[in-house]
Amino acid sequence: MNRLFIRPLMFCRRFATNPEVINPNAQQEVAATVSSEVSQPKNRLFAVVYVGGKQWKVTQDDLIVIFGNNPLKVGDEIKLEKVLMLGGKNFSLFGRPFLDRAKVHVDAVVVEKAPKYPELLHYSNQHYLIRIERWLSDMSTTLRVTKVRADDDVFQANTQ
């Protein structure tokens, strides 16, 4: 049931909205600030990405665990493309709903693939002598975020 709430996010790209420019001067000012922040590799950025039916706030060297079967193998390098937000010390960019995937780079490596910890499904009804006990398990994939970066023109790309 919980996944129902998040799943439609996948289909939202085709509805994505195109903003208008109302004050070019202010826009250029903001664009200059963002590009100067983004261009320096020492500035640490964070991003909100949508992976595995969940939203994660990640930054470089973070570990995230996603559940379910997927075609990934240990050592695979992937790019997380559904970026909802990018932030730094002095700026935050919110996608509507997503930021331009060509300009934002959130890279990750698969570091582990293992079965999930077991969880219990238990149902008992003593009147009818029913006792159902199932140990549920799933595959878990651990990702390490290796890079959260954006191109210098990330602001312009998302406002055109």
């Binding site: 998040i6 939202c12 909100v48 994660w56 706030k57 919110f94 996608g95 709903p97």
Partner: peptide, 14 residues
């Protein structure tokens, strides 16, 4: 309305 689809869990973290 602005189509910002960040969910409550992430908003709380923010």
């Amino acid at each position: 309305k602005a189509h910002i689809l960040i969910d409550n869990n992430t908003l709380a973290k923010l």
